[in-house]
Design a protein around this nucleic acid. Structure first.
Ligand code: SF4
Ligand code: SF4
Lengths: 140, 140
DNA sequence: TAAAATAGGAGAATATATATCTTATTTTCA
DNA sequence: TGAAAATAAGATATATATTCTCCTATTTTA
């Protein structure tokens, strides 16, 4: 019922790239700054590239950069880039996962909740998130 | 990002008990009807008892029964009975799980999402769910 | 062409989910 | 009163998923 560490790393990563849109950033730097294991993060960045959230450059002077405006990248985008389509119960993504799905009274509820939940996640984009002051920084 | 099989079994179980509030039901019967492994289900029922969702009776003629009105048992109640408090990211349940929590811009978002999500789950009680016709049963 | 970076695949280590088994306790009723 | 039938509780096994590393290939720069 939680996002994985991998997904959290991905979010930190996009958040860091949001603060460095002016240049190309190496995995090593993101890894250091966001305290995520370098080789794991490299894999995660590949997923972000496939999802057209980041762009990569190889070779000397290579690295990563966001490929879209932070305002056009939502929490849902990043989560789905890493975990694929999400749902709160297996039967939502694959009806055949459960023999009861055609008669089950809970099944349609999970489907509805998935839609509502995804909407909640879509509401948060990285321009807004990067602009958010954490509670401990708020003024009196 | 999904509920576990254990939790789904728990929900099926409460749903079955909702349809049999007139009597005490043995684990064996729930297991058969809801296609859940008997000894696993027995463990799950212990959690439901601890959460005051079900009541148990030992010995011959023993079994289980809901201990509250179906209308007063929500999806959130059952999920929390099985999984404990839920949140979408580890730092929400335990700030110390992540060194960034005091400065992280995403942290407060997860806290807000948790509250919104829990509200969604609270809206569904078992009286309503049991009254829901699955899509395949709807009239033309 | 050497050095520095990412790409991609394989796989190891660890944690979690999914059960099962065994023994103890409670309750009924012949 | 004692055998049978049920749950309680704890230990343990198995499977799967998560988390992370390593190796080799490819690309790019200078
Ligand atoms: S029992 Fe209902 S809710 Fe649970 S997996 Fe099957 S169809 Fe989905
Ligand atoms: S990085 Fe932020 S959101 Fe992620 S675990 Fe740490 S505090 Fe929570």
């Amino acid at each position: 019922m939680q996002i994985t560490r991998e997904t959290d790393y991905a979010i930190r990563c996009v958040l860091y790239l949001t603060s460095r849109t002016d240049r190309v950033v190496m995995v090593d730097e993101i890894s250091r700054e966001m305290a995520a294991p370098k080789s794991f993060l490299a894999k995660i960045l590949q997923k972000l590239v496939k999802a057209d959230i980041a762009r990569s450059f190889r070779g000397v002077k290579g690295g990563f950069q966001l490929s879209r405006e932070p305002r056009d990248i939502t929490l849902l985008d990043v989560i789905e880039a890493v975990e694929g389509s999400i749902a709160l119960n297996a039967c939502v993504l694959d009806r055949t996962a459960c023999g009861f799905s055609s008669t089950c009274a809970v099944h349609p509820i999970w489907i509805g909740l998935r839609a509502e939940f995804n909407e909640l996640l879509k509401k948060h984009n990285f321009a807004d998130i990067a602009g958010t002051k954490p509670s401990s920084d708020r003024e009196p």
